[in-house]
């Protein structure tokens, strides 16, 4: 497929002496939500961190928007138009919500239409605009983390488990915001353990196991095939 915004070809990543990624192949099509699924510890987060450059692939190739970013420094990759929401949210607790957002808008002042949209999606951010981000609740921090990625239009959003540890009401807020992003035609690579959310958002799905991609296809196909889910991830819809 030529219209992939992101392409990983045989990527190997080591963390200390551990081989975490062992030849990951992945294609993220433009203008769609691509799910990255799999049990815990199979290398989903490492895949995202390798793309942004926090870990270095010691073998293989990563193409972003047609350019080889495998050895590019993290800031340069980010500047190419990559929005990153890390698993630990990466909030600057000592900065206010506003300062967090100003920093995230790296190319200039915050676009006000975009900010209105973010406030509509995540009202608490408006309420606590001038408060230290460290005083926010877990769900609000996650909102801020996603809002930071959304504050500028990115070519690709890498989002790592946005619903982790959140209450159901907040999860639906997250899902709605991500749905919104999707409806705008954004390209998203999403790691998600909540299968209901994955099913609702994903266009295509990729399942990892043991540092490799073991299945790629349409999300629809995976969502309707309980036996396949059981085989790939050791879960079935009934279990959820």
């Amino acid at each position: 497929m030529s219209d992939a915004i992101l392409k990983l070809e045989g990527v190997y990543t080591n963390i200390a002496q551990y081989h975490i990624l062992q030849g990951v192949d992945l294609e993220v099509p433009r203008g769609a939500v691509t799910m990255l699924l799999g049990r815990n510890g199979v290398g989903k987060t490492t895949t995202l961190r390798t793309v942004i450059g926090h870990w270095r692939a010691h073998q293989g190739k990563i193409l972003f928007d047609g350019e080889d970013i495998t050895k590019m420094p993290t800031p340069a990759i980010a500047r190419m138009g990559l929005g990153f929401v890390p698993e630990d949210m990466g909030i600057f607790a000592d900065l206010t919500v506003e300062e967090n957002m100003v920093l995230a808008a790296a190319s200039g002042p915050i676009n006000s239409a975009r900010l209105d949209w973010i406030f509509a999606a995540f009202p608490p951010l408006k309420t606590f605009w001038k408060s230290d981000a460290g005083t926010l609740s877990g769900g609000q921090k996650q909102m801020l983390s996603i809002a930071r990625a959304m504050v500028e239009e990115r070519k690709l959003y890498l989002i790592d488990e946005p619903t982790k540890g959140l209450a159901p009401a907040i999860i639906s807020t997250m899902a709605r915001a991500l749905k919104d992003l999707k409806d705008q035609g954004a390209s998203v690579l999403l790691v998600e353990q909540n299968f209901a959310v994955a099913k609702a958002l994903g266009d295509s799905a990729n399942v990892m196991d043991d540092g490799r991609m073991i299945w790629s296809g349409q999300m629809q196909e995976l969502a309707t095939d309980a036996a396949l889910q059981e085989r790939l991830m050791g879960l079935s819809l009934e279990a959820h």
Partner: peptide
């Protein structure tokens, strides 16, 4: 100033500052 913001944010989480596109 923005430089100041980058410094303060960098003290807390340098990795994330770089992921936002700043050459720390």
């Amino acid at each position: 100033t923005k430089i100041g913001l980058i410094v303060r944010a960098g003290v807390e989480n340098g990795e994330m500052v770089q992921a936002l596109g700043y050459r720390l």
